[in-house]
Structures are given as C-alpha cells and as structure tokens.
C-alpha cells in the first residue's frame, strides 16, 4: 500500500526526517511512537503532501505509484486520508456543508455517519469552532468515514478524549482500517501515532516503529516497544538500537 524509501525531508531548510524507510502492506495497520518533537507529525504531513515539507531525496510509493511530487488533494483523491491532531477552525463553514463538499452530496450517508459518531447536532456548526477535544476527534473520524480512504493516517487519535468517547473513537477507527473484517477481506491500511497506546485496546496493530530525532530507530511488535517505553523510557530504545 505504502512504501517510503530513503526519505529525507526539510522544513525551512532544516532537515527534520533522515533516511526514513517504511513499508505498510495492504490490510496492515502500523503504529508510530516516539518522544515529542521526534518528527512523527512531520512524517505524516510529508506523506500527505502538505506545503512546507520539502522532500530533498527519497520517494513515497502509494499503491504502486510514485506520489512524491503529487499535490496534496490528488493524494487524497487517490485514497489517502489524515486525521488531524489540531485541525484549524473554519469560521462560517458548517461541518455539514464541508461533508457535502467532500462526499459529492451523499446526504443519507452523512446523516448515518454523523449519528454513529454522535455528531448529528454539530452538522450546522462551524467546523471545529468551540469543539472540545473529544468533539474534534469525533469530527475528524466522521470526515474520514465520509472520505473512506484506503490508507489512513491518524495523528494521536486518543489525545484529549475522555473515557466515554475513547471507545467510540477506537471502534470507529478499527472499522476505518477494516480491523473488524477477516484478514482475507481486509484491504485498508493505517498508520497511527500514539503516545499512550490506548488505541491498541481497540485494534491490533501489525507493526510498530519508534521515531527519534527524525530517524526510525526501531521496528518491532508495537506492544513490546510500548512496554519498553513505559518501563524504561525512550532512551532505552535508543540505547537498545545502538
């Protein structure tokens, strides 16, 4: 599904990601861990194609096609989706109108998905204006349910979410990456940034990666990596790698 090869990325002339290699197959969901400022969000935003992230070398292959130089919206149309950690507020634009614009006008589906995400009352509100942490995440998942990407990247889906909402968001994300399906019927893939690992209570990730100082220091079983971080801190992962 996604193959990142020898990727180097600079922001404002400073290299923030060094020699990243990552391979996520169809039907697989990986998690990305690492300390604050290690480059996790930069990696997701580079893959999605946001401005300000200059790919200086390497390539991103998505569904067999080199998308390294493809514009952001074409990557989205080609099947990539991103759940923002801190999405912008868009004054005046109603969430329902945004969903209409991105869905091509499937009103029935918008209503069903909004109810499912407990967002029906938010369709007539300005996008992200005054939303709580949990509401922002529910709104993000709702937008992805409408978009139905083949490959979805989630930037800390559980941060700022209370206990009541975490189950709803966890189960919905599991459905987005088809973890509710038998492995043979699973075609969607995901890459999830998590600090806490709570999301792993709702879906089994197939692999984990530890990013530190813009480099992937460790690949392995996500629960094992998380356990080491929880018990001994990120330093242990760096030491172990050495």
């Amino acid at each position: 599904m996604l193959k990142i090869e020898d990727l180097h990325v600079s922001v404002e002339g400073k290299e923030v990601l060094h020699d990243i290699n990552l391979h996520i197959r169809e039907g697989e969901t990986h998690v990305l861990m690492g300390p604050n400022g290690s480059g996790k969000t930069s990696l997701l935003r580079s893959v999605m194609g946001f401005s300000g992230y200059e790919i200086t070398s390497g390539s991103i292959i998505f569904k067999g096609i080199d998308i390294t130089n493809l514009p952001l919206y074409e990557r989205a149309r080609y099947g990539m989706g991103l759940m923002f950690q801190r999405p912008p507020t868009i004054s005046g634009l109603k969430l329902g109108k945004l969903l209409m614009a991105t869905s091509g006008g499937e009103i029935g589906e918008i209503g069903r998905s909004a109810s499912q995400m407990k967002m029906a009352d938010f369709l007539d509100r300005d996008v992200n204006a005054g939303f709580s942490g949990g509401e922002i995440k529910r709104s993000e998942v709702l937008q992805l349910l409408i978009q139905q990407p083949d490959f979805v990247m989630l930037d800390e889906p559980e941060s700022g979410v209370d206990l009541e909402n975490i189950a709803l968001i966890g189960h919905s994300i599991a459905r987005l990456v088809e973890k509710d399906r038998h492995i043979i019927d699973r075609h969607k893939s995901g890459l999830i940034i998590t600090h806490t690992g709570y999301i792993l209570d709702y879906l089994d990730a197939d692999a984990g990666h530890m990013l530190c100082d813009g480099e992937i220091k460790c690949h392995g079983n996500p629960r094992e990596i998380l356990k080491v971080i929880q018990e001994k801190g990120y330093q242990e992962c760096i030491r172990c790698q050495k």
Partner: peptide, 21 residues
C-alpha cells in the same frame, strides 16, 4: 490545506471557505 486533505483542489477549497465566510 485542511480541505485539500479531504480531496478538494485548491480552487474548490478556497470557494468552500469563502462561501462559509
């Protein structure tokens, strides 16, 4: 770019934001 990440091209994204404004 938030709207472009949902699949709208730059022109569509701009028009959608203006309409909301």
């Amino acid at each position: 770019e938030y709207l472009m990440a949902r699949g709208l091209d730059e022109e569509e994204a701009t028009a959608t934001i203006i309409r909301g404004f």
